[in-house]
Deep mutational scan, measured.
Amino acid sequence: MAAAAAAGAGPEMVRGQVFDVGPRYTNLSYIGEGAYGMVCSAYDNVNKVRVAIKKISPFEHQTYCQRTLREIKILLRFRHENIIGINDIIRAPTIEQMKDVYIVQDLMETDLYKLLKTQHLSNDHICYFLYQILRGLKYIHSANVLHRDLKPSNLLLNTTCDLKICDFGLARVADPDHDHTGFLTEYVATRWYRAPEIMLNSKGYTKSIDIWSVGCILAEMLSNRPIFPGKHYLDQLNHILGILGSPSQEDLNCIINLKARNYLLSLPHKNKVPWNRLFPNADSKALDLLDKMLTFNPHKRIEVEQALAHPYLEQYYDPSDEPIAEAPFKFDMELDDLPKEKLKELIFEETARFQPGYRS
């Protein structure tokens, strides 16, 4: 834990890192770190609560700039109880001085990944967590956004079992017609939660990839272990087919990539493993919904509104309290091709509203 900075004593240090967030945020305490930044909790002297502050230093890398800009653009436009918001952003007053960006968010005690390492969940908890994931996802999908990296560590939890989806750095506007060349190379989302079509096709992607990830998360809540822990690309596919069985001819016809289709045709026939054999203690309604989410063919996979209306979630289902976005989200430009200098300018502009004396 960093010592509390005395008023006016300059930035606090946390594990050798400068955290320049005073005077409003003090009493910093280390939480963890990701690929390009550290997260601390801090005391907000204005709202009198502890908050989470993520320090991001992305400006050396085009990919990190892209992810940072995506996350900020999306989260500043989203407003939903099951999606983490941005409360404040701290950065230098000029673009030349801006080396880091500090993002202030609600402090959540833990995440689903940490929880599943230590606790076996009751059916009631599984049901409530799944409902909140789908409630947040309904809003995301209504904005025409794909999260693309749903996994237990991106689901934040607090002691009252509130759940918030975080990390929109890989999110995209849904565009089933656009052929994202190089899709697989830039697709760094965790393999275990990846839909089979991501490994088999490169053309376009749809909201059904997020539903697949939610199915993987439900299976993990039922058993405290990942359902498809593939060691590499082909191993991942083999794990999936080992449980779902061989795809039907109709399902194979959806695979545009001939090499991928021929690979699947070359494999020995596998039978589907019954879900109640894998999860003998699970609620039968939970397994019915799991089956509809972990469907090989993305066109037959359940959609988020149908999933919310499934009998497993009937005690929570309330369409009048499951809000959607006001308007579909649009990125003005494809960020993939922009140089990091341009992305830095866009991050600077996007964060201006939090600067003292800002006038829109």
Rank of each mutant, 00 (worst) to 15 (best):
A2V: 10
A2N: 00
A4R: 11
A6E: 05
A7K: 04
A9Y: 04
G10R: 13
G10M: 10
G10T: 08
E12V: 14
M13E: 08
V14W: 04
R15V: 05
Q17S: 02
V18H: 04
F19S: 04
V21G: 10
G22P: 11
P23V: 02
T26Q: 08
T26M: 06
N27F: 07
N27V: 05
L28I: 00
L28P: 10
Y30D: 09
G32D: 02
G32T: 02
A35H: 04
C40T: 10
S41W: 12
A42I: 01
Y43M: 00
D44I: 04
N45S: 14
V46W: 09
V46H: 09
N47M: 09
N47W: 13
N47A: 07
K48G: 11
V49Q: 09
R50Q: 10
V51H: 15
A52C: 07
I53V: 02
I53P: 02
I56F: 15
P58W: 15
E60K: 15
H61V: 09
H61K: 11
Y64E: 12
C65P: 12
Q66E: 12
R67S: 14
L69T: 11
L69H: 00
E71T: 11
I72Q: 09
I72T: 05
I74E: 06
L75G: 02
L76H: 02
R79M: 14
R79H: 03
R79T: 06
H80R: 00
H80D: 06
H80F: 00
E81Q: 05
E81K: 12
E81D: 14
I83W: 00
I83D: 00
I86S: 13
D88M: 01
I89G: 01
A92D: 11
A92F: 00
P93D: 01
T94R: 11
T94M: 15
I95K: 11
E96Q: 10
M98P: 12
K99W: 00
D100N: 14
V101N: 08
I103V: 00
V104Q: 10
V104K: 02
Q105V: 14
Q105T: 15
Q105M: 05
L107E: 05
L107M: 12
E109Y: 09
E109M: 05
T110D: 05
T110Q: 06
T110R: 01
T110Y: 12
L112S: 03
L112H: 07
Y113M: 07
L115I: 05
L115D: 03
T118L: 08
Q119C: 05
H120A: 14
L121Q: 14
L121D: 12
N123K: 15
N123D: 02
N123H: 06
H125A: 08
C127M: 12
Y128Q: 03
Y128M: 03
I133R: 03
L134A: 02
L134C: 06
L137S: 06
L137R: 11
K138S: 08
Y139N: 14
Y139A: 08
H141N: 15
H141A: 05
S142G: 03
S142E: 03
A143L: 04
A143Q: 12
H147I: 09
H147M: 02
R148A: 07
K151I: 07
L155E: 03
L156F: 04
N158V: 04
T160P: 12
C161S: 15
L163P: 08
L163C: 01
K164P: 00
K164H: 07
K164Q: 03
F168R: 12
F168S: 07
G169R: 07
A174V: 14
D175A: 15
D175C: 03
D175Y: 14
H178G: 10
H178K: 10
H178Q: 13
H180C: 07
T181D: 04
L184H: 08
L184Y: 05
E186M: 03
E186W: 02
Y187V: 11
Y187T: 02
V188P: 02
V188G: 13
A189R: 12
R191E: 05
A195N: 08
A195M: 03
P196L: 12
P196R: 06
P196Y: 01
E197I: 06
I198D: 02
L200A: 07
S202C: 14
K203T: 11
K203H: 11
Y205P: 06
S208M: 05
I209F: 14
V214D: 04
V214P: 10
V214S: 11
G215D: 11
C216D: 06
E220Q: 02
M221D: 10
L222P: 11
N224V: 08
N224A: 05
P226Y: 03
P226K: 00
I227T: 03
F228G: 00
G230Q: 02
G230H: 00
G230N: 00
K231R: 02
H232L: 15
Y233K: 11
Y233D: 12
L234H: 11
D235P: 07
D235K: 07
D235Q: 11
Q236E: 08
L237Q: 14
N238D: 00
N238Y: 14
N238H: 14
H239E: 08
I240W: 02
G242W: 00
G242K: 03
L244H: 00
L244N: 03
S246K: 02
P247V: 07
S248W: 12
S248E: 07
Q249M: 08
E250D: 05
D251K: 03
N253V: 10
N253A: 07
I255F: 14
L258F: 03
L258G: 06
A260V: 13
L265G: 04
S266P: 00
P268H: 15
H269F: 00
N271Q: 04
K272Y: 09
K272H: 01
V273P: 00
P274Y: 05
R277P: 07
L278V: 10
P280V: 05
N281A: 01
N281K: 13
A282F: 02
S284Q: 12
K285H: 04
A286H: 03
A286T: 13
A286I: 03
L287P: 00
L289T: 01
L290D: 06
L294C: 11
L294W: 03
T295Q: 06
T295E: 07
F296T: 09
N297H: 12
P298Y: 02
H299Y: 14
H299R: 09
K300M: 14
K300R: 11
R301F: 07
I302T: 00
I302S: 00
E305K: 13
Q306L: 14
A307T: 13
H310M: 03
L313N: 03
E314S: 08
E314Y: 07
Q315I: 03
Y316P: 00
Y317N: 14
D318P: 02
D318N: 14
D318Q: 01
S320A: 09
S320L: 07
D321Q: 02
D321G: 00
E322K: 13
I324M: 02
I324A: 03
I324K: 03
A325K: 02
A325F: 00
A325Q: 01
A325I: 03
E326W: 08
A327D: 14
P328Y: 01
F329K: 07
D332H: 08
M333H: 04
E334V: 14
E334S: 01
L335N: 07
D336L: 07
D337W: 05
D337N: 15
L338M: 14
L338F: 07
P339I: 03
K340H: 04
L343R: 00
L343E: 10
E345S: 04
L346W: 03
E349I: 00
E350S: 08
T351E: 05
T351W: 00
F354T: 07
P356M: 06
P356V: 00
S360N: 11
S360A: 14
